[in-house]
Design a protein around this nucleic acid. Structure first.
Lengths: 168, 168
DNA sequence: GTAATATACTAGGACGTCCGACTATCCAAT
DNA sequence: ATTGGATAGTCGGACGTCCTAGTATATTAC
């Protein structure tokens, strides 16, 4: 008669315990925070991507679409997209390449600055953005697996972290 | 006389505003939470990796080393590493390949189960783990850019999220 | 006006993650 | 005992991220 499967302990709480046991109490909470961030991001990303998969886009590309969706002119320079999304320029090149292949956006020359490439949202991209957002809102964002108070607290704490890091 | 550079707004607060403006209030906070998680993870990872870079390991490989460091026997099966770190088996294969190339660990056959490969921490790996941890503790974990109360609150909220997701 | 610097974008490569497919081995049910 | 299903590990591929380097164009300084 085998014992019932032992419930796995929280691996992060376990690591925190090890940190303390080795005399690293001063760093244990910080370690737990960083490790939790890594894991929580993986979980959230997986949820989002599973909703987006049928639309043929990833979260990175979806973010580009939404930025264009919200823009007055329906187009933005590559560089501005990178700054807003806070990713490297080459990541924008990558995302726009794939969006362009899927006929969701297209590249246009900037009228006055020939260094700049504008990314323009095409009708199919706009439609996809609207539909995917509806589904993301329903299935993920409106029910993120946390109480509303915890969601707010999370956003505030992370805003402070981002601010400390010079994000804004 | 040009105006001083406009301080960039928090891009996530800006997105949240757009969400509300489009009638998606019910999802705005969840969207902000998910997006904040993505960005905060990037920030934390970059900090950690910049400390680890001189040691020639990444955070993923460092996590494997620490798991072995804490283990009684100094060795663990590949599968157990994957479960504890909550990553795909192929990610473990990848990390162990590189750690093995650097002579920090080595693969050993399991004495009784021939399916299983044990990963054994070598002296160089143990030393690296100890040194890197000292530096990570000082430079990142003990000063994560948040007040102690916020760190604790962050860990608790993310623990709930992870628990909801079935992590433990 | 010309030279130095800054900005915009792309190419190629490294890395970690996941997934699907595949082999080897163990275990359990018949 | 054999067969069917679970488990362990690896391989190849897709994707996003970053970094370095390189080209083209603007802007600034002299």
């Amino acid at each position: 008669m085998p014992a019932p499967d032992q419930l796995p302990l929280d691996p992060i709480a376990e690591a925190r315990r090890q940190w303390a046991a080795h005399g690293w109490e001063a760093a244990a909470d910080g370690m737990a925070a960083v490790t939790s961030l890594m894991r929580a991001q993986q979980i959230a990303l997986a949820r989002v991507e599973s909703v987006l998969r049928p639309y043929g886009v990833t979260f990175a590309r979806y973010e580009v679409l939404m930025l264009l969706f919200f823009s007055r002119a329906g187009s933005l320079p590559m560089a501005k997209i990178g700054k807003r999304l806070q990713v490297h320029a080459t990541s924008v090149t990558n995302a726009v390449d794939r969006l362009e292949s899927a006929d969701l956006v297209r590249r246009t020359p900037h009228p006055t600055d020939r260094r700049t490439t504008l990314v323009e949202l095409l009708p199919r991209g706009r439609e996809l953005a609207a539909n995917a957002t509806k589904e993301l809102n329903d299935q993920v964002f409106a029910a993120p697996g946390l109480s509303p108070a915890h969601v707010t607290s999370l956003v505030e704490v992370l805003a402070q972290l981002r601010h400390e890091a010079g994000d804004f």
